[in-house]
């Protein structure tokens, strides 16, 4: 049965009103979803992680890292860190600094309650622990696409756009240093790009400590731009670059540097010191080591 003109106009206006009403409702909801998490939430999450930290490190002695043994390794640069366990008091400022520098996302409450965070630096045995950038990395060996690879200057790099999310690397890391993006952090309002230099990661890719690759890249690019084309036998050594965690530590317990550069603070401060690494990683040529005990 057809409807007459009046009814038609009535239904049209009803539809228009409904559209306006519900259309209006959509906008505030979208704005809510797009709200960026506050800095306080990031700080609180780090505090929660610190309170829940239960794992310990089983450390064994390792020799001082030297040049990488992969083909094409640089003879000048091998970046790494040394963490002084005696100076560290477990304050967790390094974790917060890393999270803000690298735009590490928050996790939903259920995961946080179970102690599953996305933090690249974990507190284990009251020492900050992160990917040690093994010279002979088990994760890189099994990545099917080559997203996990090694740079000639010693970083175990993670290329997010090449990651297909098979999680084989995560399964193969003996100390579970890698984190998987189970959630679309941006959509859930759990991510915030504090640092524009570092991209936000998509759902479904692995991430881990990058030894602040972006800082090293920027420094290297600046160095190479300033060179004159013909001159300068000088090579880039990454001097003056500090990772976010090393910068943030109030006790200077984290020392970043170049294992192959005698002028690097890393080499100077680890000279004649005994270096340690977790037992599971000791044979894998770690670039990040621990120090303890007075000289």
């Amino acid at each position: 049965m057809g409807m007459d003109r009046r009814e038609f106009i009535k239904s049209c206006s009803l539809v228009a009103v409904m559209g306006l009403l519900f259309g209006c409702r959509k906008i505030p909801l979208e704005e809510l979803a797009g709200d960026l998490p506050s800095l306080k939430r990031f700080e609180d999450e780090v505090k929660l992680a610190l309170s829940q930290a239960k794992k310990t490190l089983d450390l064994v002695k390792v020799p001082t890292p030297g040049a990488l043994k992969i083909p094409g390794a640089s003879a000048l640069n091998r970046f790494g860190m040394a963490i002084d366990l005696d100076a560290c008091d477990g304050c967790g400022k390094c974790i917060l600094a890393c999270n803000l520098e690298n735009n590490v996302p928050l996790v939903p409450d259920e995961d946080a309650a179970r102690g599953r965070f996305m933090h690249w630096v974990d507190m284990r045995g009251s020492a900050p622990f992160m990917c040690v950038h093994c010279g002979n990395a088990p994760c890189e060996r099994v990545c099917p696409t080559g997203a996990a690879n090694h740079t000639p200057d010693g970083l175990s790099a993670m290329m997010y756009k090449r990651c297909t999310g098979s999680r084989f690397c995560g399964a193969n890391c003996p100390v579970q240093a890698r984190k998987f993006n189970f959630n679309d952090a941006q959509k859930l309002g759990l991510a915030r790009q504090f640092n524009r230099e570092v991209p936000l990661r998509d759902k479904g890719v692995m991430e881990k400590c990058s030894l602040c690759l972006h800082r090293l890249q920027n420094d290297r690019l600046k160095f190479k731009t300033s060179l004159t084309v013909d001159a300068s036998a000088e090579e880039w050594r990454g001097r003056g670059v500090k990772t976010a965690c090393a910068e943030a530590c109030p006790k200077n317990a984290i020392i970043f540097g170049n294992w192959l550069d005698e002028k690097s603070p890393l080499v100077k401060l680890t000279k004649n010191r005994e270096l340690y690494a977790p037992r599971e990683l000791a044979d894998l040529d770690p670039s990040v080591v621990f120090m303890r005990g007075r000289r």
Partner: peptide
């Protein structure tokens, strides 16, 4: 896979 559309890699 976490990122199914990258399976071709």
């Amino acid at each position: 896979l976490g990122v199914v559309e990258n399976f071709y890699m």
